[in-house]
């Protein structure tokens, strides 16, 4: 039986400011394409279950867990990974600076989720009432939540 729709095997998208056309099976998880095909390793792979948040990226500014996102879905959309926050001169993003100042990195595994969720929330509302609800999709195995909270709560002023 013929269908009017072909399987998606090519995706044109923008990743960290670079437009790319990827020859990929559209059903692969975005995290695998970022790490295996594009060598973008700041997007970590933890649980593959949507629990830990280590694979968080922004898609059109919205935080998503990239282990759950079919790469075929990002055609025509803008993906930002933690690597993409770096300035042209290699400078850290202000939110990253706050994490550094607060000693909130620890092992660094959960960083993509915590930093990107903070950045996304501050872009939407530069003076948020409460950022903690924006971060509850990220698990820190080091249990360094106090330092993360310190960094996140300092971030609104740094972000401006």
């Amino acid at each position: 039986m013929s269908t009017t729709t072909d399987a998606i095997t090519s995706v044109t998208t923008t990743v960290d400011g670079v437009q790319l056309t990827l020859a990929v099976d559209g059903g692969r998880a975005l995290v695998d394409v970022l790490r295996q095909d594009l060598s973008l390793y700041s997007t970590h792979l933890g649980c593959r279950n949507g629990d830990c948040g280590a694979c968080t990226v922004l898609v059109d500014g919205t935080p998503l867990k990239s282990c759950l996102v079919p790469v075929g879905r990002i055609g025509g959309r803008v993906v930002e990974t933690l690597e993409g926050l770096e300035g042209d001169d290699g400078a850290l993003h202000p939110v990253q600076e706050e994490f550094l100042d607060a000693g909130a990195f620890q092992c660094g595994f959960c960083l993509a989720g915590h930093v990107l969720c903070t950045v996304a929330a501050l872009r939407r509302d530069p003076v948020p009432a409460d950022l903690s609800a924006e971060l509850d999709g990220n698990l820190c195995r080091c249990t360094g939540y106090q330092q993360i909270a310190t960094a996140v709560h300092a971030a609104p002023s740094a972000h401006r």
């Binding site: 269908t3 009017t4 072909d6 399987a7 998606i8 099976d25 949507g50 759950l68 079919p70 075929g72």
Partner: peptide, 30 residues
Amino acid sequence: RTGYFAPTTRRAALDLLADGGPTTVIGGGT
């Protein structure tokens, strides 16, 4: 059959399902 399909009309989506072959429908993906 395998592959990832993202139909843009309901008709096309239903055509894909119409042969009754094993298919996983993705709503969000979570």
